[in-house]
Design a binder for these strands. Structure first.
Lengths: 230, 230
DNA sequence: ATAAAAAGTTAGTTTAAACTAACAAAATAT
DNA sequence: ATATTTTGTTAGTTTAAACTAACTTTTTAT
């Protein structure tokens, strides 16, 4: 079994991984608020346990064992977030802190029950995929709102990180998952987008916000008469 | 804030307290499976924090601050047990281990929500009182079944400790809280009781079991015709 | 191409919480 | 009343996980 500390490093390794799955000591240090030499020591320990590939001065990478462990921790986190929202009535900006603690609970029974009560959900309240029972994550290929062309209509599917302030801001703007947005204009200078949703004429979203929103293009399925079964 | 380790000592101090509220170093050592010198050191630390009264070679005793802290931890434990049974469908013999971990979660919001969803319960699934929001416990004065006289009818109100094996045994015997038992006979030699419940003619309960069951005498309220409001 | 900055590493220290060995006090039994 | 056993304490060790200071390697900028 791994300690809470170890689990937190494993999760950070997973969450900070780039396309190649690589992370630097420095990034982990900043993310966890732990000094670099401490991180370095822990990486050597996790390398001993065959959880990370470690070579001096090279980027860090989880082994397949490490990725699985990370997936299982994140599964517990996201299932719990979903449970807190769906069954207990918490809002999406309140659940991260609680799930951050409950993800370390050792009780397969408990999380299986949650999964069952929720009907085996595939995504959490922020639109992130819930890893399966083996720790495997099925990545969803969404686009960032900031990469969408003017004139397009998209559906908001997920937020890229569940930062408390971002979630509060989105809520205050009436933005939640599932909503449809039309990109009316994009300011070239700073990337601010003018969008329309909820029948509101126009709202402004800064580039910072647009980079955090994951969307998919809405195919305007025009239902033809002949396709409607009677 | 106190660490997990500290919280476990505080809880043990509370649970092992005799009528005077006193506990020995040895008892804590046995209960927690931690060697006496370690316990001794922790007691000095908790004394520094004004959580226990400590004097060399004297019994240990929680301060009022300590009792309050213990009450608040036990509140979290018992609320969680109740939630697991009432809202998640766990049985009374599965919840202790899970609650043992969740009692350390730091999130007033989370436990307030549980309390609310349960409708502010006063007892947990084993009949133990749930301390109030200030950590105060209202003790219920029940009798041990082993102290009941032959011929008496009692109601099973609580089990004295939520030991896994005991709970499984009781379940297998069809015994649960609220049930009424008639004490048919008491074997003088070993204290075995012959009891009747659930319309079963007679069941035997060992002294060991009878010492763990908390009951109250059933006042046979014979409802007279004149008392029934129409 | 070299100097400066950033990132990574090593060595040694600190704190919490466990341990063992050895000793002291209190309780129990003869 | 004294010897033995049990309980409590002290001193010193270990491990996990943090830290600082100092040094090395790699990256970036001039």
């Amino acid at each position: 079994m791994n300690t809470f500390a170890e689990e937190n490093y494993i999760k950070a390794l997973f969450n900070l991984a780039d396309e190649r799955g690589e992370v630097s000591v420095n990034e982990i240090s900043k993310k966890l608020g732990i000094k670099m030499p401490t991180v370095n020591g822990m990486m050597k320990k996790l390398a001993e346990k065959k959880i990370v590939h470690y070579e001096s001065y090279k980027p860090l990478k989880l082994t397949s064992k490490g990725r699985k462990l990370a997936g299982l921790i994140i599964r517990k986190h996201r299932l719990m977030e979903m449970y807190l929202v769906e069954k207990m009535g918490f809002s999406w900006d309140e659940v991260h802190e609680i799930a951050e603690q409950i993800e370390h609970i050792q009780s397969p029974k408990f999380f299986e029950k949650i999964d069952e009560l929720l009907g085996h959900p595939k995504i959490d309240p922020h639109g992130s995929p819930i890893p399966d029972k083996k720790g495997a994550v099925s990545w969803l290929q969404y686009d960032k709102l900031c990469d969408i062309k003017q004139g397009t209509t998209v559906r908001l599917n997920a937020v890229i990180h569940s930062n408390l302030e971002l979630l509060k801001y989105l809520t205050s703007k009436g933005l939640k998952l599932g909503i449809e947005l039309q990109v009316i204009a994009i300011e070239e200078y700073d990337g601010t987008m003018t969008v329309s949703y909820n029948n509101k004429p126009s709202e402004y979203l800064s580039q910072k916000v647009c980079e955090s929103l994951l969307v998919s293009k809405v195919t305007n399925k025009i239902i033809k008469q002949k396709d409607i079964k009677t």
